[in-house]
Design a binder for these strands. Structure first.
Lengths: 134, 134
DNA sequence: CGGGATCCGTGAAGATACTG
DNA sequence: CAGTATCTTCACGGATCCCG
């Protein structure tokens, strides 16, 4: 599964900080991109306000910015219906649908391992605390 | 690694819907976590300096910080060999191995779609430019 | 309704120097 | 070798107001 994928080390060309890992990170990092992609994937074509309600805690500004970036990268399609009041819908491009599937796996992983991670964190903090008191 | 606290209500209620998505993001966001997990997964037990060379562009400080966070979350195991000079090796925990497989899929996606994303970005920027000049 | 513009705080990340 | 310690910078993201 993790067989054929690329080497992170990429044999030392001086230009190789163009590593695709960082490009990927620029795409899905930020607090909101994954959540938005997931939601758009689940709810099909979805309106701005629906997204705003669906992604808990996001501000109008960050929703707009994240949508623009995803659109710019060719992951989202923005469709404007010239009605009044305006109606704008967002949907995934085919490539983004592939990505959304992987992100679903990620979310699944997070769900399954949530308790273990919480426990590990508590133990680590407890040990760190104990050492500080020695 | 979330910054400005969205600070959800302290009360436990129906509004307490803190989806695991954000927890996941805290875990793998940051510029370096994915790269490190991938590299540790590929190279098995790996030493600090090897990581420093393998992850291009990372500073000593950020490597340390990211390693500590991953260890704290129970994704990495840090093994100290009390030799001289010191030797420290990092390896994945079983849960992290699952995660690394998914991250490999992600990296794969990034590789496969790199050209399309670049093209989409160029087109978007061109259109934006054209509009600004109208 | 679906944004854009602006101001601002804060944490992520860089640079540099030192250490057991 | 494998880290700490400090200082600084920067851009992410929140809050607020405005607009077609």
């Amino acid at each position: 599964m993790s067989q054929g994928h690329t080497d992170v080390t990429v044999q030392a060309g001086p230009l190789d900080h163009i590593c695709p890992l960082n490009e990927l990170l620029d795409r899905i990092s930020g607090k909101w991109a994954i959540g938005i992609l997931t939601l758009v994937g689940d709810r099909g074509p979805i309106r701005f306000t629906e997204l705003e309600r669906g992604v808990r805690g996001i501000s109008r500004r960050m929703l707009t910015l994240t949508l623009r970036n995803l659109e710019r990268d060719g992951l989202l399609v923005r469709t404007v219906h010239p009605t009044v009041p305006p109606k704008v819908e967002y949907s995934l491009t085919p490539e983004a649908r592939e990505l959304a599937a992987i992100l679903a796996d990620l979310t699944d992983w997070a769900l399954r391992h949530r308790p273990q991670v919480a426990r590990a964190r508590a133990e680590y903090d407890a040990r760190a605390q104990a050492e500080r008191e020695r």
